[in-house]
Amino acid sequence: MDTSTHIVMGVGLAGLATLDPNVSSSPYMATAVLATTLVASNAPDFDTILKLRNNAVYIRHHRGLTHSLPALLLWPFIVSGGLMLFFQDAYWPTLLLWAAISVFLHVFVDIFNAYGTQALRPVTNRWIALGVINIFDPVIFGAHIAGILLWIFGVPPGPTFAVIYFLLIFYYLWRYSQKQQVVRQARNIHPTASHIFVLPTIRWHKWHLVIRTPDMLYVAQSKNRVIHFFESYTFDPIPNDPVMQAARSDKNLAAFLSFSPTYRWEMEATDEGGYEVRFVDLRYRSNGYYPFVAIVKMDAQMNIVTSYTGWVYSEETLRKKLKIIT
């Protein structure tokens, strides 16, 4: 989920924590738990600092180690132990409990996005992305805001957020059933499809799709339970030739391939006598343009001259970024 949602979820969990007698009986403990749930609800995303290095490092590692099984165990101790420095009279087991709940919920809800997490690392480094909930969901965010407002106006927060989280369970189940319906519709149209990638949008009735058959890739959209097709591309596996192998040694392209499950690629000679290799992620389509890309430029000897991976929304912007990196 996005940062704003994780923040309101931190507040919501602090409200839910008031059902704990150790919290409800002490304003001091209530404040300590609020600080704990706010920090713990955002702790797994502290790896956002990797953006300061470069996009390749960020894309390859964001929601990786910090969302892994060891992290689920370590973050609660780190957060609760750190906050004990500021709340020295707090009951530490309670802070540890709500830190653990907050961290677990953060990683759990991230699994339902299209981006996903490596939540089972080190058992497996596979990205787990259920593609059910958009990275920002107005229902989830709005439910928390409503609960916070009721809390401000004097409604007991414990029962309020208990009801909110109970109802959100059914919301998640409903969204999952909606996605499965889209998958079934797509498979009815293309029964030979080997993979059907479905991405949620901020609108309930709209989903992005990429359908992969043995020979083709179809980019489509499901809107109001009707599938509309946009583009189709021949499905060509990545060739094992010297140019492509040289390009795949680049850190930016390697990061892209570690993250993107469905893409198309282009390889062409440049006017300067070198080569340009480009990959575009077909899951993300915006106004007919695919903004998540990786591009590698090489000279005639297949030495990498410049490369980039990330989000760009025009060819002009991409060319500018390549010149800056060079």
Rank of each mutant, 00 (worst) to 15 (best):
T192F: 03
V139K: 03
G12Q: 04
A146K: 05
M1K: 01
I211W: 09
V182I: 12
F259D: 06
N134F: 14
I78E: 05
I78S: 07
N188C: 00
A129L: 09
T31N: 10
W207I: 01
I145C: 06
M302Y: 10
S258Y: 14
G81L: 13
F77V: 13
Q178C: 13
D250C: 15
L130N: 06
V243E: 04
Q301R: 11
D89T: 11
L72N: 09
T213N: 05
L322H: 08
R278F: 08
K51F: 08
A43R: 14
I325N: 09
V296Y: 02
P27V: 02
L173G: 13
M9D: 04
A32P: 03
A56C: 05
R264Y: 14
Y275M: 07
G82N: 02
V155E: 02
V163R: 00
G154L: 09
L105T: 12
G12C: 06
Q88S: 15
G154T: 10
Y171H: 11
F166A: 14
L34N: 00
T5I: 06
I59Y: 09
T262F: 05
L74Y: 11
Y218P: 03
W151P: 01
A193G: 10
T3Y: 01
H205T: 15
I202D: 06
A220V: 07
S68F: 03
E272Q: 12
P242Y: 13
Y233M: 12
A146H: 01
A294Y: 04
L96H: 02
R60K: 02
P242R: 08
L209K: 04
A35R: 05
A246F: 12
L130Y: 08
A246C: 00
L168V: 11
L150W: 00
L120N: 00
Y263K: 00
P239L: 04
E266V: 13
R278Y: 09
Q88T: 15
T117Y: 03
W127F: 06
L72W: 06
V57M: 05
S286Q: 05
W207D: 01
V33S: 00
Y172H: 11
L97Q: 09
V226Q: 14
W207N: 02
V39D: 03
I324E: 15
T262K: 01
R203E: 14
S314D: 03
Y28A: 15
G131S: 07
V210C: 15
K206L: 06
V11H: 06
K297M: 13
T37C: 09
A35F: 10
S68V: 02
W174M: 11
A300D: 13
V139A: 08
W127T: 13
I295H: 11
L199W: 00
V33C: 02
V183W: 09
P191I: 09
A193Y: 12
K251H: 15
A269L: 05
P242S: 08
N125S: 12
S258V: 10
